[in-house]
Simulated scan of single mutants.
Amino acid sequence: MTKSTVLTLVGSLRAESTNQKLAEAIQLNAPEQVDVVIHGNLGNIPFYNEDIDVEGQVPEAAAALRAAANEADTLLLVTPEHNGTVPAALKNAIDWLSRPFGAGALAGKPTAVVGTAFGQYGGVWAQDEARKAAGIAGAQILEDVKLAVPGSMVRFAEVHPKDDAEVVEQIKGVFDAITASQPAA
């Protein structure tokens, strides 16, 4: 059986980000037939600017992101909520992946959005905005994939998400939904 690759982009740049920890828990709980790759720091990618998005001159970090997304079977965006919306680093990654328009790395790519946030709703506004932006950019949004963990700063103050039985069970549901959305082999 061929392994499928899920490229995971974490919208938070903090080293101790609860969303980074959630991505790690997702990676640790992936089914055997799924390889979860967490992309490096999105903070290294310059803000999208069409003037620098020129063949042969694309910044290395942006080119690496595009290459990783092109190779992946599915994208998983893991986002905190910044002022009620998606963080700039994640939105910037979506912008780079959307170009060239209609033929970017997001075009037709199955994409899911999950995350955790301090608030009582677990960052659902940011997740909705990320789905919207990725969908407009051409991604095939996996609407049935849901995971929003509220109260992250308290909930994960002393427990890593990988050790939270409820979160691990929800992660299994994420993979079940991703698998159900993929065409039969």
Results as ranks from 00 to 15, higher is better:
184 A>S: 12
141 I>K: 03
151 G>K: 10
178 I>L: 09
128 D>I: 05
31 P>R: 03
100 P>L: 02
61 A>W: 10
77 L>E: 05
55 E>M: 11
6 V>L: 06
156 F>Y: 08
171 I>C: 10
154 V>G: 11
18 T>V: 13
180 A>L: 10
140 Q>R: 13
22 L>Y: 09
50 E>Y: 08
171 I>V: 15
159 V>H: 02
54 V>N: 03
41 N>H: 11
94 I>T: 04
26 I>Q: 09
116 T>S: 15
13 L>Q: 10
32 E>I: 06
10 V>E: 07
50 E>N: 11
17 S>I: 08
134 A>E: 08
31 P>H: 05
143 E>V: 13
40 G>S: 12
143 E>A: 14
29 N>W: 02
165 A>Q: 14
107 A>I: 11
40 G>P: 13
174 V>C: 09
173 G>W: 11
147 L>W: 00
123 G>Y: 00
23 A>I: 10
164 D>M: 12
19 N>G: 06
110 P>V: 05
106 L>N: 04
50 E>T: 12
124 V>S: 10
145 V>P: 10
64 A>L: 09
136 I>M: 13
87 P>F: 02
177 A>T: 13
72 A>L: 00
58 V>D: 07
73 D>A: 08
65 L>N: 07
93 A>W: 01
61 A>F: 08
28 L>K: 14
12 S>L: 15
174 V>L: 15
149 V>L: 02
158 E>Q: 12
7 L>V: 03
104 G>K: 03
59 P>M: 02
113 V>Y: 03
169 E>Q: 14
60 E>R: 15
59 P>R: 03
95 D>P: 00
185 A>K: 12
123 G>V: 02
23 A>Q: 12
89 A>Q: 01
117 A>K: 08
66 R>I: 15
179 T>W: 13
132 K>W: 09
154 V>P: 01
100 P>G: 03
173 G>C: 12
34 V>W: 12
